[in-house]
């Protein structure tokens, strides 16, 4: 089975309000470091990380996006082809939790996945380290309830600063994205070769 050994590319998009720590989470995961000196992300940046998952070499392509609403119109260019969407909020800022619905729906609208109802999301509640947890305004219970209402989205409490739960969260991201990609493979296997070729040609060229 050559398929099982091939290199897999998974595209992951990180969304959430400005300043919740999207860039910090990505850099903690990919480079194992935390900095107080990040600039606000404009448009989007991406980095890649290779991980071994069972018998597969998986390349995670992580897209870190800008948090200001004005940039949402760029979504089509950045969300397209995503295998998983990571939503991030700051447990100390209520508004960043309240806007999750908007990020979730806007993503589905612009990424336009084949099956929106089963598209994998993951929620991260970041900055749990701040003030020893005394300044948090969104409880774990409340976050989990939201996840449940949105089709049982996996939830992680993280601290990019302390490297708390970051690896675990992204491992879950990779697994979920991989499972989603798997489903698509199975889906395409059932389509006769000729049809899929036509589809490819149709999509790649306007002539």
């Amino acid at each position: 089975m050559s398929i099982s050994r091939r290199r897999t590319l998974l595209k992951v998009v990180i969304l959430g309000d400005s300043g919740v720590g999207k860039t910090s989470l990505m850099n903690q995961y990919v480079h194992n470091k935390f900095s107080q000196q990040y600039k606000a992300t404009i448009g989007a940046d991406f980095v890649t990380k290779e991980i071994q998952m069972e018998d597969r070499l998986v390349t995670l392509q992580i897209w870190d996006t800008a948090g200001q609403e004005r940039f949402q119109s760029l979504g089509v260019a950045f969300y397209r082809g995503a295998d998983c969407c990571v939503l991030v909020y700051d447990v100390n800022v209520l508004k960043s939790f309240d806007t999750l619905d908007n990020w979730h729906d806007e993503f589905l609208k612009q990424a336009n996945p084949v099956d929106p109802s089963s598209f994998p999301f993951i929620l991260l509640g970041n900055k749990v380290d701040i003030d020893g947890g005394n300044s948090r305004v969104v409880s774990e219970k409340k976050a989990k309830e939201w996840c449940l209402s949105r089709g049982n989205i996996p939830y992680f409490e993280t601290s990019a600063k302390e490297a708390y739960n970051v690896d675990a969260a992204f491992l879950c991201v990779a697994k979920t994205a991989l499972a989603n990609e798997h489903d698509q493979d199975i889906y395409f296997q059932n389509i006769p070769e000729a049809v899929s070729e036509t589809e490819q040609r149709g999509g790649g060229c306007a002539c």
Binding site: I42, G43, A44, L74, A77, F78
Partner: peptide
């Protein structure tokens, strides 16, 4: 747009 957006925005 994926790489040149920031060039113009900033």
């Amino acid at each position: 747009l994926q790489f040149a957006f920031r060039w113009f925005n900033c």
